[in-house]
Amino acid sequence: MNTAFLDTNIIISWIFLINSLHPKSVDVFKSYSQFFWSSSVVKELEKKFNVKSKNLIRFFLDLQKFLENPEKDLYSISDLIDFANEHCSKQLLDEVKSSVKPFWSEYLGIQSRIPFFDMKNAIDFCLNDLLLNLDINKRGIEEIMQLSPQRNNDYSQIDAMLESFGVHEEDRKIILDGHDFACFSTQPVDFVTFDDDCFNGAKNLDFLCFNSVKGKYDFTAS
């Protein structure tokens, strides 16, 4: 069996359709037969899921209200980005702007300019998915994920090396959880992450117990 230990960003990318890495997360779940996570991933997922869903729902509700009195007949991606720049706090801006192109691709297709009515309908469909389907997607992922045993070793030397590579504390915990699980697994375990720093940190340590370290460039967006 092909076994993967997943970082939080893989799961977030799969849950949220309007995410640039969603297609690659789908490929991750097609590439393995068993999926593991740790309590560190579960905790981080809860936090990131709540923040991301709240931010996106807020943005599209604001956009829906704004379009009750449209300023033009045709809208483009740049119009949505302009709206985000004008109406979103700095805290929300990166989250929202990274979702605009995936939203357009998912709900509007390849046209560069869209009539107002089509834009309004797309926002309504997107909000429906955000309000009704996110929890369904999350529960679906939780059903196939398996919890790894609690790690007891702090691996302080490995942790220090990962820190020297610029890997953040939460990511270091997840790498070490995966390493500990892989060391005692009877099957080869790949570590999969879409975070560049996390990927580079784990990739640079040849003595970790992972069969392989995979990143976003190892998967297709078909």
Results as ranks from 00 to 15, higher is better:
K48W: 03
L56Y: 01
K54F: 09
C88L: 11
Q64L: 08
K90R: 15
S89P: 01
R58Q: 14
S78G: 11
I57W: 01
F83Y: 13
F83W: 01
E86Q: 10
N69S: 13
S89T: 00
K65M: 12
K52Q: 10
L63I: 06
F66I: 05
L61F: 00
P70Y: 07
N50P: 06
F83P: 05
N55Y: 12
F60E: 01
K65S: 15
R58D: 15
K54Y: 08
N69E: 15
N85E: 15
F60K: 03
D62L: 07
R58M: 11
N85Y: 12
L80V: 04
E71Y: 03
K65V: 13
L56P: 01
I57H: 03
E86L: 05
S53E: 14
K72I: 03
C88N: 04
N55R: 14
S78C: 09
L67D: 00
I57M: 08
N50F: 05
Y75M: 06
L63H: 02
H87M: 08
F59I: 01
F60N: 01
D82G: 07
K65N: 14
L67H: 05
E68F: 04
K54R: 12
I81R: 09
S53H: 07
E71G: 07
L74S: 08
A84R: 02
L74A: 05
L61V: 09
N50Q: 14
N50A: 15
